[in-house]
Nucleic acid binder design. Sequence first.
DNA 1: CACACAATCCCCTAAAAACAGGATTTTTAC
DNA 2: GTAAAAATCCTGTTTTTAGGGGATTGTGTG
Lengths: 204, 204
Amino acid sequence: MIRLFIIDDHYMIVEGIRSLLQSEKNIEWLGHAMTAESCMAFLQHDLPDVLLMDVNLPDQSGIDLCKVVKTKYPKIHIIGLSSFNQQSFIEKMLENGASGYVLKNATSLELIAAIETVMEGDIYLSHEAAIVVEKNQNSKIPIITRREKEVLLLIADGLTNNSISEKLFISPTTVDTHRKNLLAKFEAKNTASLVKMAIMHQLI
Amino acid sequence: MIRLFIIDDHYMIVEGIRSLLQSEKNIEWLGHAMTAESCMAFLQHDLPDVLLMDVNLPDQSGIDLCKVVKTKYPKIHIIGLSSFNQQSFIEKMLENGASGYVLKNATSLELIAAIETVMEGDIYLSHEAAIVVEKNQNSKIPIITRREKEVLLLIADGLTNNSISEKLFISPTTVDTHRKNLLAKFEAKNTASLVKMAIMHQLI
DNA sequence: CACACAATCCCCTAAAAACAGGATTTTTAC
DNA sequence: GTAAAAATCCTGTTTTTAGGGGATTGTGTG
């Protein structure tokens, strides 16, 4: 008997999954939470085997929650759940300890396969998610430093090097160096494409 | 008896809605489609009273499909369905003839209220959707011309005024004028914030 | 304890964008 | 058919960014 809990703020999704798994005799439905907070509260008195977790939650990012849950309860197998097959989400969930990633347009067969696969300690990626990861493993997301991200956000807000330097209490030339590094990392020709790429990669 | 049809490519959502409405005796479930194409095919031989339509479909935008369906079958009441409470989506659906907009985290009560409201010829906006429309009606989206949009896209791709002028066969000074007008319309200080604002407003 | 890496700072030149004025010719809409 | 809106073009100046170098200091990891 696989004990299943789900956390998703979309009522229709919760209901849909329950309906899809109703006929599965070896899956026990423990219940659902709609916020990260109530999920943590539930876990204090009852531990599921598998946790289906929406990537986008109202009070906290599912990506962060995944890490918290895994640290506190390492035995739980977490499956990420999302409408978006974006490699950034998928990768981050896996990095934070998730064992699987399923898209919300998955069939009941896929869902059951996912649950059974992670129960055996393996990784399950939804077909389309796997394709995305495969396709985008070359077009990797640039790794930027904390300071670079700060500068990037201010650039996107329309601040000039001078304004940024005043805000961060550093020299304008330092800001310029960060800017140059950002352009190089994103392979962007100028600020316009830098901002676009950064937003496309969910970094803003 | 209200005849209901649903178009959404997320299997879990379809199943969830069916489950939520199962107990409603005065709603007849005609079936579901997962693409715009199969939806149109269905409508050729059977007409629902209410059509629940996902805003994001795989083969066509729900926003466009809404217009097509309304033109061909004006009697159908369409309710937009989406995870996102973005005013641009909501407004565009209503402009294209939709009678309602419901978020995917709606409860069964909200959903039933929506279906009954639109059946009476009224407009139904999900609570959170209404708040978004209310809140954002001041922070209006700039109205830009066709040419300005062309230039905007090329700017966001990192092209300079000169490159754009060559691509569009116009003078660099003309491109510069469009650029100035864009900056003014978006109240942006420079290209960086222009691009960010444009993406935030779904114009890119 | 090296070594990489992040963060900081500097110089210089050229290119591009921002700012401030104009002006003319097409379209589009009433 | 006329008036408004869009699209086109111009001449300047100033500010900002892009591109090319180079250098120092601290911090954390193997």
